[in-house]
């Protein structure tokens, strides 16, 4: 029982690697408590060996994502009061990524796919050229803007069943990134990028389930971005610019 009179939370947290198990802790309930606060309490007061990741605590860095009561979520912006079932909370590592230990997953596959999707800006000018003005009201800039606020949290990647079934699948975040660059008129790597995202595990593997959109904490719509890539790659193929 806490000073606020609320019963303690019963929090099950994944401990160990892939073959680990849930262990249950009792955590005092507080007002405006986030899931990250709960995990931090366990590590500071109950078990200092608990591993997890966070940095900004304000929804900007994308490092704190975990599976909370079965759903992937950013834990620093998830209030316990919104997600606890009764006084119970289950916190596990993100799905679809190898578990390093406890709540920390190995994000390498996620970021490697970001590279595979050519999610890196390819400059078309040098530092000696004048800066190219890009009007915010152009259609392409608006399309890029719609997807550009991704914080790389991996929530969509953990929510996507296609990622689970197809280990080659680049996943929603990497493809969403490719789409924002495909709409960047300053980028010089378009053909290579379209070729990369049209490959086996690319945009055409997406089933348009929209689980990624449903779970993205930034309310982005990777499904729409991937649909855009499907159209762009199909057109590029018809024009003979990329190969099947």
């Amino acid at each position: 029982m806490t000073p606020s009179g609320k019963p303690d939370l019963s929090v099950s947290i994944w401990r160990g690697g892939a073959d680990g198990a849930y262990r249950t802790y009792s955590v005092p309930s507080r007002d405006s408590q986030t899931v990250l606060d709960v995990v931090t309490y366990v590590q500071r007061h109950l078990d200092p060996t608990l591993s997890y990741r966070f940095a900004c605590r304000v929804g900007m860095c994308g490092s704190c994502a975990m599976t909370v009561n079965g759903r992937p979520r950013w834990t620093c912006r998830t209030h316990v009061s919104r997600v606890a079932k009764g006084d119970k909370l289950t916190v596990g590592p993100l799905e679809n990524l190898p578990v390093v230990k406890d709540l920390a997953t190995d994000m390498r596959p996620f970021f490697e796919k970001w590279q595979d999707a050519k999610g890196v800006f390819e400059p078309s000018k040098t530092r000696d050229d004048a800066i190219e003005p890009i009007r915010p009201d152009t259609r392409q800039r608006q399309l890029a803007d719609a997807g550009v606020e991704c914080i790389n949290c991996g929530v969509c990647y953990a929510a996507c069943d296609t990622v689970k079934w197809n280990t080659d699948y680049l996943g929603p975040a990497a493809l969403n990134r490719a789409w924002t660059l495909a709409n960047d008129v300053r980028d010089a790597g378009q053909t290579e990028r379209l070729q990369a995202v049209a490959s086996g595990g690319g945009c055409h593997a997406c089933h348009s389930h929209q689980s990624c959109q449903e779970h993205c904490p930034q309310t982005l719509n990777p499904t729409a971005s991937i649909a855009g890539l499907k159209r762009l790659t199909a057109l590029a193929y018809l024009r003979g610019e990329i190969e099947a």
Binding site: S12, N69, G70, R71, T90, G92, E95, S211, E214
Partner: peptide, 18 residues
């Protein structure tokens, strides 16, 4: 599947795909 693996899938579009 992890705890409540189905819970996050309970939305209309996931059922539409199924």
């Amino acid at each position: 599947m992890s705890v409540g693996a189905l819970s996050r899938r309970r939305n209309a579009l996931w059922y539409a795909a199924l």
